Computed example of a mutant assay.
Amino acid sequence: MDIAGDIKRTFKEGSVLTRLIYINIGVFLLLKIIGVFFYLSGQSLPVYQWLSVPSVTEVLAQRPWTPITYMFLHQGFIHLFFNMIGLYWFGQLFLYHFEGGKLLGVYIMGGLWGAFLYVIAYNLLPVFSSTNGLLLGASASIFAVLVAIAFYDPNREIHLFFIGRFPLKYVAAFYVLLSVIGISSTNPGGNIAHLGGAFWGWFYIYQLRKGKDMGAGLVNLVNKIGGFFGGLFKHKSKMKVTYRKPPRDDHEYNRQKHQQQDEINRILDKIAKSGYESLTKKEKELLFKQGKK
C-alpha cells in the first residue's frame, strides 16, 4: 500500500476544502511526532507558543506570522476532530454554491478577524487587564464559513444527529449565541475569536451580494505563494483538449444533444436559485459558449 502516494494524490487533486483539512491534520500530526522526541529528551515543546496568537501586543509584534499559523494549530485530538468535522460539513455546503477560492478567502479572513477581535478585547476590556493568553485553532475560520453560508442560504435544512432537520440560519444563530454566552466561561478568548470569524462570514456575503469579493485579493496572493511552492491551493484545471469522433448515427447524436441541454438547464436552474455568482468557472464558460451558438 502506497499510503504516502495516496495522500499526495488526493491532496493534489482534491478541492480547497480537502487541502485545508489535510493541512490542519498534517500540522497536528507533525507537531505531535516532534513532541515525542522532545518528551524523550526531557524538554518541553515551545513551538505552540511560537505559532499561537499572543494577547500581548509587544509579543505579537515579534511574532507577526501567528495570525496565520494559529488557524491551522490544534493541541488536542478532540479539538482537532470536532473542528474538522465542522469544517467538512459547512465547507461542503459552501462549495455547493461557490468555488474553492471563495472558501479559502472566507477561511483565512475569518481567522484573521478572529485573531484581531481577540487581541483588541484582551487589550481594551478591563476584565482581561491582568490576563495573558494564547489563541489557537480553526474555530474562528469555521465560524466564518458557517455564518457565510447560513446568511447566503438561510433556509437550507441540515440534519442534526438525534435532533432532526433544522434551517441553517438557526444552527448558525445557536452557535453564535453559544459563543456570546461562553465569553464568561473558561475560554473567553476563543469565544471572542468565534465572533470575529462570524462577523467576517456575514460581511463577506453582504459585500458579495453587492458584487464585491472582499477575499479575492488575498486568494490571489495565496495562489501566487502556492504557485511558488508547487501549487498549494491553486486548483489546476483538469480540462484537456480531446478530439471526439462524430456521432455514428442519429440516435447517438440526439443522446449527446440531450445531455448537453440537461447540463444547460441545470446551470440555468442554479442561476435562478442562487444567482450568477454561484456558478463555477467551468459552468460560466459552458454557458458563454452556448450563448455564442
Rank of each mutant, 00 (worst) to 15 (best):
L93G: 06
F94N: 08
F94K: 13
L95H: 07
Y96F: 14
Y96S: 08
F98V: 09
F98Y: 15
E99V: 08
G101M: 07
G101K: 11
G101H: 07
G101F: 08
K102G: 12
L103G: 12
L103M: 14
L104R: 07
L104P: 09
G105N: 10
V106A: 13
I108D: 06
I108Q: 07
M109Y: 13
G110I: 02
G110V: 01
G110K: 03
G111C: 08
G111K: 05
G111L: 03
L112I: 11
L112W: 12
W113A: 15
G114K: 02
A115E: 09
V119C: 10
V119T: 15
I120P: 09
I120R: 10
A121F: 13
N123L: 04
N123P: 04
N123K: 06
N123D: 11
L124M: 07
L124A: 08
L124V: 12
L124I: 06
L125R: 03
L125I: 13
P126K: 07
P126D: 11
P126C: 06
V127Y: 03
F128Y: 14
S129I: 11
S130G: 11
S130T: 14
S130C: 05
T131K: 15
T131Y: 10
T131R: 13
T131E: 13
N132C: 02
L134T: 03
L134A: 09
L135R: 00
L135C: 00
L135T: 03
A138C: 08
S139I: 01
A140K: 02
S141L: 05
S141F: 02
I142F: 06
I142N: 14
I142M: 07
F143R: 03
A144M: 04
A144R: 04
A144K: 04
A144N: 05
V145G: 04
V145F: 09
L146P: 03
L146R: 11
V147W: 06
A148N: 06
A148S: 14
I149Q: 03
I149D: 01
A150H: 08
A150G: 06
F151T: 13
Y152P: 03
Y152S: 09
Y152M: 09
D153P: 01
D153H: 04
N155V: 00
E157C: 04
E157D: 12
E157W: 04
E157L: 12
H159N: 15
F162G: 08
F162A: 15
I163S: 13
I163M: 12
R165D: 15
R165Q: 15
R165I: 06
R165A: 14
K169T: 03
V171D: 01
A172H: 11
A172Q: 12
A173V: 10
A173M: 15
F174R: 01
F174W: 11
V176W: 09
L177N: 10
L178V: 09
L178M: 14
L178Q: 14
S179T: 06
I181E: 10
G182R: 05
G182A: 05
S184Y: 12
S185K: 10
T186M: 10
N187Q: 14
P188Y: 11
P188H: 11
P188W: 07
G189H: 05
G189E: 00
G190V: 00
G190K: 02
I192G: 04
I192M: 09
A193T: 02
H194S: 09
L195N: 02
L195H: 03
G196L: 00
G196S: 03
G196D: 03
G197Y: 01
G197S: 06
A198Q: 01
W200S: 04
W200G: 02
W200M: 06
W200R: 00
W200K: 02
